[in-house]
Lab assay of single mutants.
Amino acid sequence: MSIQHFRVALIPFFAAFCLPVFAHPETLVKVKDAEDQLGARVGYIELDLNSGKILESFRPEERFPMMSTFKVLLCGAVLSRVDAGQEQLGRRIHYSQNDLVEYSPVTEKHLTDGMTVRELCSAAITMSDNTAANLLLTTIGGPKELTAFLHNMGDHVTRLDRWEPELNEAIPNDERDTTMPAAMATTLRKLLTGELLTLASRQQLIDWMEADKVAGPLLRSALPAGWFIADKSGAGERGSRGIIAALGPDGKPSRIVVIYTTGSQATMDERNRQIAEIGASLIKHW
């Protein structure tokens, strides 16, 4: 067993022997301040990774656009098919120029040779490549099948209805392509620590998230040296922004954090800054 596999296998073990965790309302004060600064709703939840206990939450059962955070769930569904012998990570998928959609920095470079399922998941999570996500959605049967996968996990809230990039439209009061912070946090925890996926697939999923290259201005910008984070960000229309993450000190994750916002007129930089400040408060009061 590799060191990384050992780390993920012992996530519940280490967490069980940690000192009790206590909620700190100071972080919620910052979440509410972010709402004021952005002029928009902000949803927040913080779960203990081992027990699933909610440590703090704000608007945990209000719907927010998922945006690209759905790509972690998508690759979880792909990995479940791999575990069941219905898919192979090494299978190569070929596609054409007509398949390319807006923001496809990886797939646009491989029109000639195609990409493997493993490479597509890596591109979808680490670079948020939209064509990679659409190609992977095709392998599982489309958005409705991802929703069905989530329902089978016990998540009857999260739903995907459309493809990239239309799913980022974020129309107010439109339930399409949305989740709730509580539902997303619980589902992410199941994917990373539950028995739904094999140990190898859980490790692969967290490795992809740990290698995320496009979430630097968010929670990662607030992390002290030595902290662990595996995350996936999302951005959408109407001032929408979000991030889902597993993080913790001492090089291992111990909490799940989900943050979503929508309806702001603020710039992307300002949305990023507010999420980073929430992260800084979380870490300060850990």
Rank of each mutant, 00 (worst) to 15 (best):
residue 277 E to R: 07
residue 282 L to S: 12
residue 243 I to V: 08
residue 235 A to V: 14
residue 143 P to L: 05
residue 168 N to K: 12
residue 164 E to T: 09
residue 145 E to I: 04
residue 118 R to D: 11
residue 42 V to Y: 13
residue 209 M to A: 05
residue 165 P to L: 01
residue 44 Y to E: 01
residue 63 R to V: 09
residue 235 A to Y: 14
residue 273 R to P: 14
residue 30 K to N: 15
residue 24 H to T: 11
residue 121 C to H: 00
residue 24 H to Y: 10
residue 185 A to T: 13
residue 51 S to M: 09
residue 153 M to V: 08
residue 82 V to A: 03
residue 284 K to D: 05
residue 92 R to A: 11
residue 283 I to H: 06
residue 110 H to E: 01
residue 135 L to C: 01
residue 256 I to Q: 11
residue 200 A to S: 07
residue 153 M to S: 06
residue 192 L to I: 01
residue 58 F to Q: 05
residue 86 Q to P: 07
residue 194 G to E: 11
residue 203 Q to T: 02
residue 133 A to D: 01
residue 144 K to E: 08
residue 172 P to M: 04
residue 72 V to G: 03
residue 125 I to K: 04
residue 285 H to Q: 04
residue 148 A to G: 08
residue 147 T to D: 02
residue 82 V to M: 02
residue 261 T to S: 12
residue 30 K to E: 15
residue 176 R to A: 00
residue 154 G to W: 08
residue 131 T to F: 02
residue 261 T to I: 01
residue 276 A to D: 14
residue 106 V to R: 04
residue 86 Q to I: 14
residue 55 L to S: 08
residue 39 G to F: 02
residue 162 R to N: 00
residue 73 L to M: 07
residue 162 R to E: 00
residue 128 S to K: 14
residue 166 E to G: 06
residue 169 E to W: 00
residue 195 E to F: 00
residue 89 L to W: 02
residue 148 A to H: 07
residue 145 E to F: 13
residue 184 M to I: 11
residue 136 L to H: 03
residue 30 K to F: 15
residue 197 L to H: 02
residue 278 I to D: 09
residue 231 D to L: 14
residue 151 H to N: 07
residue 250 D to P: 09
residue 177 D to I: 11
residue 189 R to C: 15
residue 91 R to M: 09
residue 270 E to P: 15
residue 213 K to I: 00
residue 97 Q to V: 03
residue 112 T to R: 04
residue 274 Q to A: 10
residue 258 V to M: 11
residue 67 M to K: 06
residue 67 M to I: 15
residue 241 R to A: 15
residue 242 G to F: 13
residue 96 S to F: 06
residue 59 R to S: 03
residue 203 Q to R: 05
residue 218 L to M: 08
residue 142 G to Q: 01
residue 242 G to A: 05
residue 25 P to I: 06
residue 45 I to L: 12
residue 77 A to Q: 12
residue 264 S to L: 04
residue 70 F to P: 05
residue 162 R to W: 04
residue 223 L to M: 15
residue 25 P to A: 00
residue 135 L to T: 05
residue 47 L to Y: 03
residue 140 I to Q: 03
residue 242 G to N: 09
residue 183 A to V: 10
residue 200 A to H: 05
residue 50 N to T: 09
residue 34 A to T: 08
residue 89 L to G: 01
residue 110 H to K: 09
residue 212 D to L: 01
residue 188 L to C: 15
residue 140 I to P: 03
residue 62 E to I: 07
residue 204 Q to E: 10
residue 218 L to H: 14
residue 65 P to S: 03
residue 173 N to M: 08
residue 258 V to A: 07
residue 152 N to F: 09
residue 35 E to V: 02
residue 127 M to D: 12
residue 53 K to W: 04
residue 204 Q to P: 00
residue 97 Q to G: 03
residue 70 F to T: 02
residue 181 P to Q: 10
residue 274 Q to I: 12
residue 250 D to V: 12
residue 127 M to H: 08
residue 269 D to H: 10
residue 264 S to V: 02
residue 104 S to K: 04
residue 34 A to L: 04
residue 178 T to W: 14
residue 167 L to A: 01
residue 124 A to H: 01
residue 140 I to T: 02
residue 122 S to T: 11
residue 164 E to G: 00
residue 157 V to Y: 13
residue 178 T to R: 12
residue 43 G to P: 09
residue 244 I to H: 09
residue 285 H to K: 07
residue 241 R to M: 15
residue 277 E to I: 05
residue 195 E to S: 03
residue 143 P to C: 04
residue 246 A to D: 10
residue 30 K to G: 15
residue 177 D to Y: 00
residue 246 A to K: 12
residue 142 G to I: 00
residue 149 F to S: 05
residue 218 L to P: 15
residue 203 Q to K: 12
residue 222 A to R: 15
residue 166 E to R: 05
residue 26 E to P: 10
residue 197 L to V: 03
residue 95 Y to H: 06
residue 277 E to L: 08
residue 67 M to A: 04
residue 109 K to Y: 07
residue 87 E to H: 05
residue 129 D to C: 00
residue 122 S to M: 09
residue 79 L to H: 05
residue 225 A to I: 08
residue 136 L to G: 06
residue 255 R to W: 03
residue 135 L to W: 05
residue 228 F to N: 14
residue 194 G to K: 00
residue 156 H to P: 10
residue 260 Y to L: 14
residue 83 D to F: 12
residue 240 S to W: 12
residue 239 G to F: 04
residue 94 H to K: 11
residue 215 A to W: 04
residue 168 N to F: 10
residue 110 H to D: 02
residue 246 A to I: 13
residue 83 D to W: 12
residue 82 V to H: 01
residue 256 I to R: 12
residue 125 I to Y: 04
residue 180 M to W: 06
residue 117 V to S: 06
residue 249 P to F: 10
residue 269 D to F: 13
residue 195 E to C: 00
residue 189 R to F: 15
residue 56 E to I: 11
residue 92 R to F: 10
residue 218 L to D: 15
residue 168 N to H: 08
residue 161 D to F: 00
residue 58 F to W: 04
residue 196 L to T: 06
residue 150 L to E: 01
residue 236 G to L: 15
residue 202 R to A: 04
residue 285 H to D: 00
residue 189 R to T: 15
residue 181 P to K: 05
residue 72 V to T: 10
residue 73 L to N: 01
residue 270 E to W: 00
residue 258 V to G: 06
residue 78 V to E: 06
residue 248 G to L: 06
residue 44 Y to N: 00
residue 38 L to P: 04
residue 56 E to S: 11
residue 63 R to W: 11
residue 223 L to N: 05
residue 60 P to N: 01
residue 45 I to D: 06
residue 250 D to E: 10
residue 70 F to V: 06
residue 251 G to F: 09
residue 191 L to A: 12
residue 133 A to V: 04
residue 117 V to D: 12
residue 132 A to Y: 09
residue 178 T to I: 13
residue 40 A to I: 11
residue 182 A to K: 06
residue 216 G to M: 05
residue 267 T to E: 10
residue 139 T to N: 14
residue 164 E to F: 00
residue 50 N to I: 10
residue 96 S to D: 07
residue 249 P to N: 01
residue 79 L to D: 05
residue 36 D to E: 13
residue 141 G to T: 02
residue 55 L to K: 09
residue 26 E to Q: 09
residue 230 A to D: 14
residue 85 G to T: 03
residue 251 G to C: 14
residue 115 M to P: 06
residue 199 L to K: 01
residue 124 A to D: 02
residue 189 R to N: 14
residue 232 K to I: 08
residue 96 S to R: 07
residue 271 R to T: 13
residue 225 A to G: 08
residue 224 P to T: 08
residue 244 I to A: 09
residue 259 I to L: 12
residue 106 V to I: 09
residue 110 H to L: 01
residue 286 W to T: 03
residue 246 A to H: 12
residue 157 V to C: 09
residue 161 D to I: 02
residue 112 T to E: 01
residue 162 R to G: 00
residue 176 R to T: 02
residue 103 Y to G: 14
residue 77 A to D: 05
residue 83 D to P: 01
residue 134 N to G: 02
residue 211 A to P: 14
residue 162 R to T: 01
residue 70 F to G: 05
residue 42 V to Q: 07
residue 213 K to W: 07
residue 58 F to Y: 01
residue 27 T to Q: 08
residue 148 A to S: 10
residue 252 K to C: 13
residue 119 E to H: 01
residue 194 G to A: 05
residue 119 E to C: 00
residue 121 C to Y: 00
residue 38 L to C: 01
residue 148 A to V: 03
residue 183 A to Y: 02
residue 38 L to Y: 00
residue 227 W to I: 07
residue 273 R to K: 10
residue 218 L to I: 13
residue 88 Q to P: 04
